[in-house]
Structure formats: C-alpha cells, structure tokens
Nucleic acid binder design. Structure first.
Length: 257
DNA sequence: ATGGTAGGAAGCCTA
C-alpha cells in the first residue's frame, strides 16, 4: 500500500515539530506540503531526511511555497505550473515517486473577489486544468493533492450562506474544480464518503476549531489509473488540535500496490 | 458582532 498525504502547514519553520511528530505516527510514504513560507536554502531538510524522506522543495520568501516528501526516490522533477511565464508565486511542484506522478498544489485563495486576486485564481485554475489534461494523456497513476482553496459543495462548509460570495465558493471556482472531475479525475474523499461532513481547515479566528466550524478545501484528485487502486481516504484532524497547530489538518489516501 | 488570530516581514500583507 502507498499512503499519500497532503497538508498545508502554514510555515514549515514554525510547524517542524508537529510535522516530524506526524511523520512518525502516521508514517505516510508521500507527503505534499503547502504554505511552507521558506526559501529553499532555509528549508529544514536534514530533520526531515533523518525521518527517512527524500525531499523536493519549491519555495520563496514570505509567501506560498510547496514541497514533496517521499520515502521513495523522487524522479522527473517539474517545477512551476506552465502558462504563467511572469508568475513568481511558488504554488506548484510535480515529480514521480513510487510509480505515481504526484503534484503539490497551493491554489490561490482569490479573495477579495473585487481585486485582481480573483481573476488570477481563475486563470491559475485554467492553467491547472491544462496541465492535468497533459498528465491524463500519459495514462499513468497521478495524484494531484493540495490546498485547492475551493469548497466543492455546501456540505463542505459550516455556513454556506455566509460563504456564498467568497472566492472559495463562487461558481467560477466551483465550476473549474468540477472541470477537473469531468476531465477524468476522481476526488478521493467525497468518492469514498458521499455524505460525510468533514473539514480540513478551521480558521484561527472566532474559535472556529473549538466550534467545529470548518471548510473542506484540501483535496486529493486521482487519475483513473490511480483511482483503480484507491483503498482508503481519511482526514486526520489530530494535528489541528495540537499545540502550535496549522489552521489546516492532513488528509491522506492509500493506493493498493 | 465587518471583528476575530496566526505567520512573516519590518513598521502591513496574506490568509
């Protein structure tokens, strides 16, 4: 079995103790990280390598930043999402490991929707769909995991009415998320748990974690060849309740070998 | 309740 997880850690520097603890207890084979907020030369490589992981990092100063951790070798590295030649934001990295093509995705938030941030998000989603189509053409197992900053349906939100016009809920965002599904990708969690209300993110503000008021915005999208092998998919809310917690918690799936 | 909290940067921006 191959266990693949994704986790928006909101600063790898601050979150390193929590990440190391979770690597030890959950023992994932592959981990996709987002919002590492670290220059590559400042990334705490040695501590993670000491846990038995190979490492691929793509970061920048202050914002964004993605990484892939794997117990297997990382091959055919691909950095950055095509189609944005002047795009400086570190939000996409891709590699092959354990026979699976994996991508760590930090999709733009897009708020406020009245600013240039929203069209940037939508254009980024169109670029992602184009790349996802290319990967489908290879007819290999692909897992596109990360913080999609999209609430796919009202079931995935504690208060859909309050969030209706937010960039995470807007139809422009949801329809493009569905485009990925229509093209052939399978969303692992909702496929295995059609009616379950679970979240991957709880805002630091207003006591959302304590109130159980969250959003499901971190997703694992599987190509048909990966979906054939899908065994399980669960959200591990444990890390969200820990000390110095990220506002996101890990979600993982297992693929049969 | 148009605030609230967290992180990184540097004296605000992003989420």
């Amino acid at each position: 079995m191959l266990k693949i997880a994704t986790w928006n850690v909101n600063s790898i520097k601050v979150r390193l103790p929590a990440v190391l603890e979770w690597l030890g207890s959950a023992a994932p084979d592959v981990v996709l990280l987002q919002e590492t907020k670290s220059l590559d030369e400042a990334f705490p490589r040695l501590e993670i390598e000491d846990c038995g992981y190979n490492l691929l990092v793509h970061g920048q100063k202050t914002y964004n930043g993605v990484a892939i951790l794997s117990k297997r070798p990382l091959e055919d590295v691909f950095i950055g999402l095509p189609g944005g030649e002047d795009d400086e934001q570190a939000r996409y990295v891709e590699a092959t490991t354990g026979g699976v093509r994996v991508a760590s995705i930090y999709l733009p938030n897009g708020n406020p929707v009245t600013t240039e941030k929203f069209p940037y998000k939508i254009a980024w989603m169109d670029r992602l769909a184009a790349r996802a189509d290319v990967l489908l053409g290879h007819e290999e197992p692909v897992v596109l995991g990360g913080d999609y900053n999209v609430i796919p349906a009202d079931l995935d939100c504690y208060d859909p009415k309050a969030w209706r016009d937010d960039a995470l809920c807007r139809n422009e965002s949801r329809s493009r998320f569905r485009t990925l599904l229509h093209s052939g990708y399978v969303e692992a969690f909702r496929t295995l748990h059609p009616n379950r209300r679970s979240y991957t993110f709880w805002d630091y503000q207003a006591g959302r974690w304590q109130r159980g008021e969250g959003l499901r915005i971190d997703h694992l999208l599987l190509s048909p060849e990966a979906a054939d092998r899908l065994d399980a998919c669960e959200i591990d809310s444990g890390p969200r309740g820990g000390v110095k917690a990220s506002d996101h918690t890990p979600i993982w799936c297992t693929l049969r070998e």
